[in-house]
């Protein structure tokens, strides 16, 4: 059992009322937490002995058209002893929102703004939730799956314009 799995089991033991699911894949531990209790879960991981005091990354995944479509992903790291845990919360709907982690880590400030900018997920309690990468007057959230890549066709063989993304088409998922 890896250190991350041990830590996750320990946190699950401590938060008995919270429904935490543990997933192991390629020696990485993912904890799926309910979105309402996410701050409690994150705080427990942060403050646990030999826990994960550093927020390395905060991002999101859009699984459109599946529902709940959004996953907010927190990557937590402890340096000594080395441990790395991924905490996920699922959010449904077109206007998702979740509590902000800026009170736990100032590092979350820009990371949450980036997720808001690119995915349109609102973080309640964020001090300054504005666009960060795109211009302020931009419409839409580009990393959503229903936002087009907006490619321009490019001339290919025999000067036939083609969209680069269509040259190798997407194949259906294989089991």
């Amino acid at each position: 059992m890896s250190r991350a799995a041990e830590l996750a089991a320990q946190v699950r033991g401590r938060l008995a009322e919270t429904d935490l699911q543990l997933v192991e894949f390629r020696d990485e531990t993912t904890v799926i937490a309910p979105a309402e209790q996410i701050i409690d879960v994150l705080r427990t991981f942060r403050d646990a002995p030999d826990g994960t005091p550093v927020l390395t990354d905060l991002t999101a995944v859009d699984r459109f058209p599946a529902e709940p479509r959004f996953e907010v992903v927190y990557l937590l790291t402890g340096y000594a002893p080395p441990v790395r845990v991924r905490v996920k919360a699922r959010l449904a709907g077109d206007t998702p929102s979740i509590a902000s982690a800026t009170a736990l880590w100032p590092a979350a400030n820009w990371l949450e703004r980036e997720v808001y900018d690119l995915f349109g997920i609102r973080f309640e309690g964020h001090p300054n939730l504005t666009r960060i990468l795109l211009p302020d007057d931009w419409g839409g959230h580009p990393l959503r799956k229903d936002f087009p890549l907006t490619e321009e066709p490019v001339q290919f063989i025999n000067h036939v314009p083609r969209i680069p993304g269509a040259i190798i088409p997407k194949t259906p998922p294989r089991p």
């Binding site: 795109l134 580009p142 936002f147 087009p148 890549l149 907006t150 490619e151 321009e152």
Partner: peptide, 12 residues
Amino acid sequence: CGGVFNNYALVQ
């Protein structure tokens, strides 16, 4: 001409 990037963010 936009190079390898052909997307929403860049001027082509």
